[in-house]
Design a protein around this nucleic acid. Structure first.
Lengths: 253, 253
DNA sequence: AGAAACCAGTTGTCATGACAACCTGACATC
DNA sequence: GATGTCAGGTTGTCATGACAACTGGTTTCT
């Protein structure tokens, strides 16, 4: 194995419920992010990797496909698989701001500003596939990271989730975590990112000038039965928050 | 085959250079978008689909995985594959605004405002992995859709691309198309979406009030050798443009 | 009636095997 | 030097086969 070729130092636990391909992908991702697989280098070829790791080549391929889809490697036909610079960030996947911040090592805290049952506004009703005016649970939170407000979040969920989305829960965890803990599996979301000027209340809460620019994000999330379970409308101070993401070309995977 | 089960009516061209799994995925996607596979319905099961289409089950699985990753279906273990509502939009993939608009049926037109060789500003140089002050090609365009300005776009590319990114080309096509036509394959990008207030010139060009909110997008694109080939900084009038996307949960695919 | 066990149906994982397509570098030819 | 050919190396596609894991419905037991 040439010095130019990275080695994965992978340890695959064959007793684990986590699939081999996923373990391998995670191991490789960690190696890339920690610089053990340095950017600009090529992975060992698939056949050799499969031999070394004592897994089948499709298993290796599947792990690498995961990495490619996350923008961590670029595969070229006939050439090999290139590790790319990791300034390229996170793939676009459905996650919550709470989870994101935790992952980024920023301690998120939450102020619950409101939690009430309301008739669904038209757009919320439409999005949650409810009749106009159906009662839904509405809650509003101010999220802070390192004691700076970074998001004002308004959410609506069907009333059936009232006992899942408790006041206590909302204070200590993110919404998606609460849902997950109660067996609700989010699988998909429709998302719109935009911008607008801050209204007075928002400006005050987010500590931006009135009329200053806000980044906005609206999201409708669906569970694994395809049912909409959340309508969210979040605003962020533009000076302190932006969406960073890696984007991959349509690679047929 | 129950009435509840969708049928794909797929026609697979085995002589085509397009892989079977990709053809199948495209056929299914078309059927979904045209309502022939109606949302809320389940696809026929994998084994049966494979039998009907005379392909292997992994080929079917791979096509379905593509759809799942695009947010068009949700797969549930033991249950089947659910077609989801197609209000859920486009997957996040590396593409250009020009291509997007064309795809959306909006006739894009372009006004080239500037094209010049300049020393790279620090951020551009850093992003394109060039020495500070290296000369690069800078160009600025105003993009209109249905005669409304919807983007002001500033881009920088390495000087080696000077003869690819011509004045004529920029007027009639998008940048990514020009690159593609010259054998440059973009594979990955790092992207930041934010917001800010419009400066006076921008406001005039985009027909928004000075100080009004703009949606911003900065992007660094990389080719298939992992080399950065484009730095782009685009601004959009918030009232007329937003990013719509579908987002999928981390599904291990 | 409620809980546990069972079963059929479906997706998920993994392996083996074969061949095609692409790419690069070396070599031959003009 | 430029162009063409070819072999070796690598990724890409596809098939066959086997088994595991999950789900919901049905049956059995308490």
């Amino acid at each position: 194995m040439g010095a130019r070729r990275g080695r994965t130092d992978a340890v695959l636990d064959r007793e684990s419920p986590v699939p081999l391909y996923y373990q391998l992908a995670q191991n490789m991702e960690t190696a890339i992010r920690q610089g053990r697989l340095s950017s600009g280098s090529h992975l060992e070829n698939e056949i050799e990797l499969a031999r070394q790791l004592r897994v089948s080549r499709p298993t290796v391929r599947r792990a690498i496909a995961l990495l490619a889809n996350r923008g961590l490697v670029i595969r070229r036909h006939g050439i090999g698989t290139l590790v790319v610079p990791v300034r390229v960030r996170r793939p676009v996947r459905l996650s919550s701001l709470y989870d994101d911040l935790q992952e980024a090592g920023q301690t998120p805290s939450t102020r619950l500003l409101a939690r009430e049952i309301v008739p669904a506004p038209a757009e919320v009703a439409g999005s949650l596939q409810l009749s106009r005016g159906t009662r839904v649970l509405h809650f509003e939170r101010l999220r802070l990271a390192t004691d700076q407000p970074i998001a004002l979040m308004r959410n609506f969920v069907p009333l059936s989730l009232e006992e899942v989305v408790t006041e206590e829960g909302l204070k200590s965890a993110g919404l998606y975590q609460l849902l997950r803990q109660n067996g609700i599996h989010l699988r998909l979301a429709s998302q719109t990112i935009g911008a607008r000027s801050a209204q007075r209340r928002e400006a005050r809460l987010l500590k931006v000038p009135a009329g200053g620019p806000l980044l906005t994000m609206r999201r409708i999330s669906y569970d694994d039965a395809g049912q909409p379970v959340e309508y969210g409308s979040h605003v962020y101070p533009a000076e302190r928050y932006s969406f960073e993401m890696s984007v991959v070309a349509d690679s047929r995977t």
